[in-house]
Structures are given as structure tokens and as C-alpha cells.
């Protein structure tokens, strides 16, 4: 009988058949199987949870459907798209022809890259450099905000324009430091000859010489380093106005320094590290005999002793 066991399991066997089956030696095992199944578990079922999931899915579908079927009424007349498109086209063309390449570095970060003529540029913290790629071959002109060190390959005139003045050279290495917040414009020449121009002031410097123009006053001095120290994670200063040093600290450590309470004619000569803020602050301000205090994690105030 093909359904004998099924009938037995559901209790549908006749009394007689049942009695006979219970004499069977396999009967105990069958009973064990049915009892054992009772102890086995099907993963629990949470009908409410599944219903909630189902409902949110249905609602998602319904909203999607209404969005699809509702008619889109445009509030912008169609002809405006024509204008918008041509405006974009014009902008696109201008940008394309301008082909300006620009690099910028963040607070505490430095960037080094090569120009198309293989000249090398090291951009110090919080600085920006840009140039026109298309015109580069005939006109090596760069715009600089902040501080950068250049190793220029020999060739045509190489000019760095800044808001404070221009520097032009013939194959050389030099460092330009201009900071919008300070009035300092400083150029160090590490090799070759560099011409520094600001307004009426014009100065030619050679290897190991540096100039700084502060308040239309030219300062010139000599130094020994072969490359600016900031390339190796230090900043060095020679008789530099305190504002120039403060700005350099702010750029390297991404901090704000309030210096209005101290005499801005103070000058600093020395080196500070880029890797330890407390050490750098100690070196700069203790030697200047200025007190400093943290107002917040990234804010420092200076005051006289």
C-alpha cells in the first residue's frame, strides 16, 4: 500500500490495521521519527515584521507609480533651454581656449610638480600656482599666491607674477614668498640670476642672495642654504617681520594666530619645524620674547610680557 504510512501518521488507519502495524518491529522507529520531528525547529516567523516590510515596499511602489504617471509641467519655457545651452557652449569654449592649469596646496601640505619645460616647482603650504598651458611654450609666465621654490630649466624668459611684484629669471633656482595678508615680498636666489620687480623698485640678485620688499623698502642679504628649508619640513627666516613668520606658522599648522597685541616691527631670525607645533611656537615666540596662549585647539593669541 502506497499510502499506508501516511494514513498511519495522520491517524487514519483502521483499528485493525493499526494493531497489526504496532506489532511490527519498525513501528518504534517510525514513532521515534514522528516524535523527533516535533523537537526540530523551523526558523521563527514574525508575521507583523514581514507585514510592515511588505507595507513599506508597497507604499514605495505606489509613490513611484504616481510620480511616473503624473504629468510633468515645466515652469521654464522651452526657448530658455536654447539660451542656457549656448551660454554653456560659450563658457565651455572660453575655458577650453584659456586652458589654465592650476595647482594649490592646503594648510600644512606641500606640493611638488613639473612644468611642461621640465622646470620643477615646490609649492609651500596654502599656496596656489597657475599658468596657461597653451601659451607656455612661447611665454613662460606663472601666477603665484603664497610661496614656492622653482628650479627653472634654461630657456626663454621665465616670469613669476604675484600681487606683490614680479620675478623673472634665466635658468636658475629661486624661492618666492608672497602672502596676501602680509606686506612681505621675498625672493631667495639659490642659483643663477634673478630680477625682482615691484612697482618702481627693481633689483637683480645672484646665487646666495635674497631680497625682501616691505612697505616699499628693499632689504637685501646673503644666505648659505642650497635650497629653502621648507622643502625639508622646516621654515627658515632671516630678520623677517613677525607677520611673515606668523603667516608661515598658520600655513604650516592650519592654525589662527592673533598678533594684533604685539609690536609688528619685531623681527625673527631662525628656523622652525613643520612637524611639532609646540616646539615651533616655543622657538619663534620665546626668542621674540612674546607670550602666547591657546584660545582653542587651533587658535592662538599673542601678547607682550
Amino acid at each position: 500500500m502506497e499510502d499506508f504510512l501516511a494514513k498511519w501518521a495522520s491517524g487514519d488507519l483502521s483499528e485493525n490495521d493499526k494493531k497489526v502495524f504496532e506489532q511490527n518491529e519498525d513501528n518504534k522507529l517510525y514513532k521515534d521519527i514522528l516524535e523527533g520531528v516535533e523537537l526540530l525547529e523551523v526558523p521563527e516567523y514574525d508575521s507583523d515584521k514581514l507585514y510592515a516590510k511588505l507595507k513599506s515596499k508597497i507604499e514605495d511602489n505606489t509613490t513611484a507609480d504616481t510620480v511616473k504617471s503624473s504629468k510633468v509641467v515645466s515652469i521654464i519655457p522651452k526657448w530658455v533651454y536654447g539660451i542656457a545651452a549656448s551660454v554653456i557652449l560659450v563658457f565651455g569654449l572660453t575655458l577650453f581656449f584659456k586652458s589654465e592649469v592650476s595647482y594649490s596646496s592646503d594648510y600644512g601640505k606641500q606640493l611638488s610638480f613639473k612644468l611642461p619645460d621640465n622646470s620643477e616647482v615646490f609649492l609651500n603650504a596654502n599656496s596656489k600656482l597657475s599658468y596657461d598651458e597653451k601659451k607656455w611654450e612661447t611665454n613662460r609666465t606663472l601666477n603665484l599666491e603664497g610661496e614656492a621654490f622653482f628650479k627653472v630649466t634654461k630657456g626663454s624668459k621665465f616670469t613669476v607674477k604675484t600681487k606683490k611684484g614680479n620675478v623673472s629669471v634665466l635658468g636658475t633656482q629661486f624661492n618666492v614668498d608672497t602672502n596676501s595678508k602680509t606686506d612681505v615680498f621675498q625672493v631667495n636666489c639659490f642659483e643663477g640670476v634673478v630680477k625682482v620687480v615691484q612697482g618702481n623698485i627693481s633689483e637683480i640678485i645672484r646665487k646666495g642672495q635674497a631680497v625682501r620688499i616691505v612697505d616699499k623698502q628693499l632689504e637685501k642679504w646673503e644666505f648659505n642654504e642650497a635650497a629653502p628649508l621648507w622643502v625639508t619640513k622646516e621654515s627658515s627666516f632671516y630678520n623677517s617681520p613677525i607677520n611673515q613668520v606668523v603667516k608661515a606658522l598658520e600655513n604650516q599648522y592650519n592654525i589662527k594666530i592673533k598678533s594684533s597685541k604685539v609690536n609688528d616691527s619685531l623681527r625673527f631670525t631662525g628656523v622652525f619645524t613643520h612637524t611639532d607645533l609646540n616646539k615651533a611656537l616655543k622657538i619663534v615666540f620665546e626668542s621674540l620674547d612674546v607670550n602666547y596662549k591657546f584660545e582653542g585647539e587651533r587658535s592662538i593669541i599673542l601678547f607682550n610680557k
Binding site: E2, D3, L5, A6, A9, S10
Partner: peptide
């Protein structure tokens, strides 16, 4: 019923 029988 046949399947049940075979299963058992």
C-alpha cells in the same frame, strides 16, 4: 499521501 508514505 503517496509522498508522505515514501518520505517516512
Amino acid at each position: 499521501e503517496r509522498r508522505m508514505h515514501l518520505a517516512l
